[in-house]
């Protein structure tokens, strides 16, 4: 038996969710651990794979892969699956991971389980996966010659294997079919104002929801974020009312954040919002309602009007 994990590259490293997927795949004890990287595997990524206990890193160097095309990525994953004789393929539950594995599922007529958090048994493969935006868990059987699953983010902590793997780099021999490039990125418009990296990497996020009251209700939120060297994050109500841009949204359909501190002001704490902020180390809620889920789930809370509390905090900070 062997497992292939799709490893996404982010700033020259294996992305966090990819390292989580590697850790998870290793913990299954389902045989040899293989990684597949689309494009040439950077040395630091090979090192991440070695630490995670990967035996073989399959890489695909076809220049046609330079711009993202999900079908072509799927062809690469299939080739790695064949080379590894895999019976299980795991991808990170990111936009790309879910998309690429759905292509593999469609091409090979296989089942796929998205956003898995745990495996209950290997034969038959029974998983627990997040549904309804994380509000419920589904226990599902995944049958088939090859089983496909994507990992929900933060289901496990990435960790190194007891013994590093050989991480032998094996180039995949494959030619990309032009059919698989019919839907390919033609260009990337680099983010300027729409940059979410500041939000997802921030150590401090000051959040604001409907309680801000309107587009003019963010002055103290902006100032506090600046004072703490952090970023502003908002709820979907705020973006759908057009008070703030969508790239600032935290949650299931926004960014997932994991700061040291999330200071959530005037946010009720719906399941969908919580899905994006649950990994924050410390959460402080500022809310007029002591029974709001954001308050009951937080580490600390201040009960009060954010328009009074935040200016007082700014004054106290000097």
């Amino acid at each position: 038996m062997s497992v292939v994990v799709l490893v996404e590259v982010e700033e020259g490293r294996a992305s966090l969710v990819s390292r989580e997927a590697l850790t998870f795949a290793r913990s299954l004890g389902a045989g040899d651990l293989h990684a597949v990287v689309v494009g040439p595997a950077p040395e630091a990524v090979v090192a991440d794979c070695r630490d995670a206990g990967v035996a073989v890193v399959h890489e695909a160097g076809d220049p046609a892969l330079e711009r993202y095309a999900a079908a072509a990525w799927a062809a690469v994953v299939e080739a790695a699956g064949r080379a590894a004789r895999a019976d299980l393929v795991v991808a990170p539950g990111t936009g790309r991971g879910n998309e690429v594995l759905a292509h593999v599922a469609a091409r090979r007529n296989l089942r796929m389980a998205a956003n898995v958090v745990a495996v209950e048994s290997l034969a038959p493969l029974v998983v627990q996966r997040q549904v309804v935006g994380g509000a419920a868990l589904e226990r599902a059987t995944v049958d088939g010659r090859v089983r496909l699953l994507t990992m929900a983010g933060h289901a496990v902590e990435p960790s190194a294997a007891d013994a590093p793997g050989a991480a032998r780099v094996a180039p995949l021999a494959l030619t990309i079919d032009p059919q698989d490039l019919r839907a390919q990125v033609v260009r990337v418009e680099k983010r300027e104002s729409g940059d979410t990296s500041g939000l997802t990497a921030a150590k401090v996020v000051v959040g604001a929801g409907r309680g801000a009251g309107g587009p003019d209700g963010f002055a103290a939120v902006d100032r506090l974020a600046e004072r703490l060297g952090g970023a502003v994050g908002v709820s979907r109500v705020v973006t759908s009312l057009g008070w703030r841009p969508h790239h600032e949204q935290v949650g299931q359909t926004g960014s997932r954040i994991a700061p040291d501190l999330y200071l959530a002001c005037g946010i009720s704490g719906s399941i969908q919002h919580w899905a994006g902020c649950a990994s924050s180390r410390t959460i402080i809620a500022v809310n007029t309602d002591p029974d709001a889920p954001m308050v009951t789930k937080a580490d600390y809370a201040v009960i009060g009007d954010m328009h009074e509390v935040l200016p007082a905090v700014l004054e106290e900070l000097g």
Partner: peptide, 20 residues
């Protein structure tokens, strides 16, 4: 979960800053 309520309204500002 046990939430620690720092206080109510503006009177909670010093307590909140202490936590920060």
């Amino acid at each position: 979960n046990e939430v620690t309520v720092i206080g109510e309204g503006t009177a909670a500002a010093p307590g909140l800053v202490a936590v920060l």
